[in-house]
């Protein structure tokens, strides 16, 4: 792996790490398997790209993207809690609806941001080159978002959210409206995912209706890899595990893509297979360790 592809993997790891944090919030905290993310990541990208081309400040466009993501997540959660549609199905419905919506927002399958202002401009303005500025900036943003989530999960509201995922009967009898909390939590998760999508679009210079494919798998892989490496003891550890898992995941992919055995090498279309194998490995690692008495 070259220095250049290493920095690229770090950059991807941190920016997709914010998405992984959102996946952690639904899958682990709320126990709500949410596939909306495959639609809300490009939603954030579309909203931000269209806003920027309309002359809106790129930082403001991030907030707009997060707001749109929140609404998408809230729709999924309303379908589940109020209309009693199974969570998995509810999220798939929102996800496919978002595909159409994203194309409407962009008025086409993609929007180019080449030559447009982005949130990385202030760093580039300091004379930093793009492939150093991006990983640095995204690391900063990812750590900040993680810190905010950790803080939130320790507040009264955040604790009620944790309890909602753990034991709904308990927290209802403590006076919490679990429906509202699930709507808020799934909304918050998708706000993070859309925020991540907006950063990705600005970084790669385009938003695309198909850029969300496989988001959920990448997110899950990150969460699970992170848990395997860092463990799940405590909110602090579990939150950082999502980010670190995302970085490890992207590094593993970059590594796999750089390998060569004679005439054979992996291509980007092999990524899904690699990801699936990685998740299986991470899921079984604890059991294998036990079985063979390692660690």
């Amino acid at each position: 792996m070259t220095w250049f592809s290493f920095l690229g993997a770090l950059e991807q790891g941190f920016v997709y790490g914010i998405m992984a944090l959102g996946v952690y919030l639904t899958f682990r905290v709320l126990d709500f398997p949410d596939l909306t993310v495959d639609g809300s990541l490009p939603l954030g990208a579309s909203v931000s790209a269209v806003a920027i081309t309309a002359g809106i400040d790129p930082f403001v466009s991030l907030l707009m993207a997060a707001g749109a993501g929140f609404m998408a997540g809230a729709v999924t959660a309303v379908l589940n809690t109020k209309l009693k549609i199974l969570h998995l199905l509810a999220s798939i419905l929102t996800m496919i609806a978002l595909y159409s919506i994203n194309i409407r927002i962009m008025d086409g399958p993609n929007v180019s941001l080449l030559g447009k202002a982005t949130v990385l401009d202030p760093l580039l303005g300091l004379g930093m080159s793009g492939y150093v500025a991006a990983p640095l900036a995204f690391a900063g943003v990812a750590v900040t978002v993680t810190g905010l989530l950790i803080w939130f999960l320790h507040t009264e509201l955040g604790q009620a959210l944790l309890a909602t995922g753990d034991n709904p009967q308990m927290i209802v009898s403590q006076g919490v409206n679990t429906h509202n909390l699930i709507i808020f939590g799934v909304g918050l998760s998708n706000a993070m995912v859309a925020f991540s999508g907006a950063l990705i679009a600005q970084n790669q210079g385009a938003a695309d209706a198909n850029m969300g494919v496989g988001t959920i798998i990448a997110g899950l892989a990150s969460v699970i890899v992170g848990e395997t490496v860092l463990g799940t003891k405590g909110i602090f550890r579990a939150c950082f595990a999502a980010i670190i898992g995302s970085v490890i995941y992207r590094l593993a992919i970059a590594m796999a893509l750089s390998m060569k055995w004679g005439a054979f090498s992996f291509t980007p279309s092999d990524l899904n297979l690699i990801t699936a194998l990685l998740v299986v490995l991470a899921l079984t690692a604890p059991k294998l360790k036990e079985r063979f008495g390692l660690g």
Partner: peptide, 8 residues
């Protein structure tokens, strides 16, 4: 009401 002050 549950707000944004620390839980514990």
């Amino acid at each position: 009401r549950r707000g944004l002050s620390f839980g514990v």
